[in-house]
């Protein structure tokens, strides 16, 4: 009896609180929105090109150029891609080495982040690939950290995204594919072929399934690499296309700029998710190599 009487009261209190929050928060958000809009408009007027026109070159950002000038691109020439890979190394060192230098029992912020990254990948390897896969954890951690940092550094305007290149992701995927296949045969011998022989299916179907399984196994590195490069490249290209629109639209350039902000937010998400997906698929493949039976 008492409960039923109390409930509406409580609800009314929260409703009032909600309303006051809306009344308090609403105008501030609106004002901020209009201020941003005004800034965008003004900057659009100031920085508008003299000859507005469509100048969309979404793929230019992916071009590989020698870092220190010159036209010749040999195998060992440092390029803009090399620079951003080195910066990824620097970032990883800053996060995992400099961040953990305190070795504190009660961690600092930097150390917490380093431990978070470590625990995240370690748990993934342990949960997905099993306890006996833990000895391959450093390699998987290397892949994850490299992709993560390449993706996030690529989100800095005017930077270069190493993982947007199929050559890079294909090498990553092939390393995983070759390693996993060799490991599967070393650990299980010919028993690794049991991966393709679906013993749960009826006998007449098994050869057909074996062919399908074999094809899907060899498609793995292709999908593994193109998924990453494609996602990263598409996002960056879309942003660049909208940027081209912004240059052409003059006063209304704020529309594509708002769209760029939205796509950028999505890209931040994609940068992490694709690193995560690549790593978890690596763990899945590793699990197949260690325990090939279905």
């Amino acid at each position: 009896m008492r409960k039923t009487r109390k409930m509406p009261q409580k609800k009314r209190v929260t409703d009032v609180a909600d309303q006051s929050a809306k009344q308090g928060g609403g105008p501030v958000i609106k004002i901020a929105f209009f201020v941003v809009l005004a800034l965008v408009l003004i900057s659009g007027l100031i920085f508008a090109p003299e000859h507005p026109g469509l100048a969309i070159h979404p793929m230019d950002q992916f071009e590989i150029k020698p870092l220190f000038g010159g036209d010749h691109l040999g195998t060992f020439t440092p390029t803009n891609q090399t620079l951003w890979m080195v910066l990824a190394i620097v970032g990883i060192v800053l996060l995992l080495v400099v961040g953990s230098r305190g070795r504190a029992i009660v961690p600092t912020r930097g150390q917490s982040l380093a431990e978070l990254a470590y625990g995240f990948v370690y748990k993934m390897v342990e949960d997905v690939a099993g306890k006996d896969a833990v000895k391959y954890f450093p390699g998987i951690m290397t892949l994850f950290m490299f992709i993560l940092f390449a993706n996030f550094l690529g989100l800095i305007p005017t930077s270069f995204t190493a993982t947007s290149h199929i050559a890079v992701t294909a090498v990553l995927a092939l390393i995983v594919f070759v390693f996993v296949t060799v490991l599967g045969f070393v650990k299980n011998g010919m028993g690794f072929l049991g991966l393709f022989w679906v013993s749960a299916a009826p006998l007449p179907l098994r050869p057909v399934l074996a062919i399908i399984e074999l094809i899907s196994y060899f498609v793995r590195p292709v999908s593994h690499s193109i998924r990453l490069a494609g996602n990263v490249m598409a996002g960056h290209a879309v942003i660049k296309v909208f940027a081209g629109f912004a240059a052409a639209l003059g006063v209304f350039s704020f529309l594509p700029i708002l769209a760029i902000s939205a796509v950028y937010a999505l890209e931040v998400l994609v940068a992490f998710i694709q690193a995560y997906v690549f790593t978890i698929l690596t763990c899945v493949y590793l699990k197949d190599a260690l325990h090939p039976s279905h």
Binding site: T75, T79, Q81, A162, A167
Partner: peptide, 8 residues
């Protein structure tokens, strides 16, 4: 590609 793979 050679350059990219080497640096990667």
């Amino acid at each position: 590609f050679g350059n990219q793979i080497f640096w990667l």
